[in-house]
Design a protein around this nucleic acid. Sequence first.
DNA 1: CCGAGCGTAGACAGGTCTGTCTGGTAACGT
DNA 2: ACGTTACCAGACAGACCTGTCTACGCTCGG
Lengths: 204, 204
Amino acid sequence: MTTRPPAPRRQGAAWTRVFEAATRLFYAEGVHAVGVDRIIAEAGVAKATFYHHFPGKDDLVRAYIVEQSRLQRAIADQPGSASPREVIVAAFERMCRFGADPGYRGCPFVNTAAEYPDAAHPVRRAIDEHRNWCRRLFRDLLIADGHPDPDRTAQTLLLLKDGLGVGFDLDDPAVVGAAVREAVTRLLDAGAHSAEVRAGDGAR
Amino acid sequence: MTTRPPAPRRQGAAWTRVFEAATRLFYAEGVHAVGVDRIIAEAGVAKATFYHHFPGKDDLVRAYIVEQSRLQRAIADQPGSASPREVIVAAFERMCRFGADPGYRGCPFVNTAAEYPDAAHPVRRAIDEHRNWCRRLFRDLLIADGHPDPDRTAQTLLLLKDGLGVGFDLDDPAVVGAAVREAVTRLLDAGAHSAEVRAGDGAR
DNA sequence: CCGAGCGTAGACAGGTCTGTCTGGTAACGT
DNA sequence: ACGTTACCAGACAGACCTGTCTACGCTCGG
């Protein structure tokens, strides 16, 4: 009589429901602002089931970060015939599209890092890993594009990425988008420009 | 017998002690992670005194943000004989010095905004005010410097400011500092460069 | 001298947090 | 037929959260 499925639930889906509810809530409201009770309520899952799949809340937070990183890598890693430079431009174009969405609430990595002051915490380590991957990706693309200073410029691209994450959340998306597009173009042109200068050609 | 001063406390200083403890803790550990009990304990103040001075915790948070904004304005507003361009460069130089400090934990405005998803919240409004002041300041300086696109470039400087706030907290400060200094210089040179080009001069 | 204002100490209420535990149900592989 | 695994419902513990309240003391202006 009791314990019948209130929702037509697929079996084996409790983990997924918990994870998806957590992802949505963590992103929209912040990690510390969302309790386990809230997550299991929205997932329609028993508390024991939650703690059966995740040893503790922090493990869920870490899984959330790792999955966000995996998603971004999957998008960036899909092969294409574009030039390195076009790949970078397309990546920022994509970020600008995401940022213009009304549901945008900032970069999940930056927002979560703000709630974990301890740099040695597993969650922070996961965030560090993602940032390192990102910086390496930028650097490799810049090298492939023949940029004269790939390491520093990769960090500059990271600066822009972090800046747009904050800006799209707190400022006017249209202005932020315009500023980002121009800054990225100029940054990449600076590399090409240097190469041209070295080849004996002037500006324009 | 009871109620003797454990510390040699100056009278009328309870508000200050609360505020300073809150500022330190909010910045170092985040707003949601620090409770009122903790603040009053570190301030050496009774709970009733806390609620005598602040209607609630959010008011204290707002006061924290407003004061941080006031401090930054005070630094930026002090007059000098420097050119507009030098003022901008000096501002970023100052931020880089702050960011290199081992106690640096990111931009208080960005970190706090990450904990207040509701854009209509008084705390978020205070943060918006600060960002608007900052953008206006950049724009006015760029106009005074004769930059051809002050509005967009002001937003770009804001992008860099937010990016360095995150980067100095999460990445290698030395690399971030180098990237910031170069990006700012290049951004300001681009304006001057456009002027030169319009005057009929080529690159270099 | 005396009251107002600021301060202390600490109990208390009502809620929420993470995490544990009991008890029972349903599907599945062997 | 049986054990395992996944799942649900919900009570419970113990800590911490914000915020209120009582009761008392110190100091200073009038």
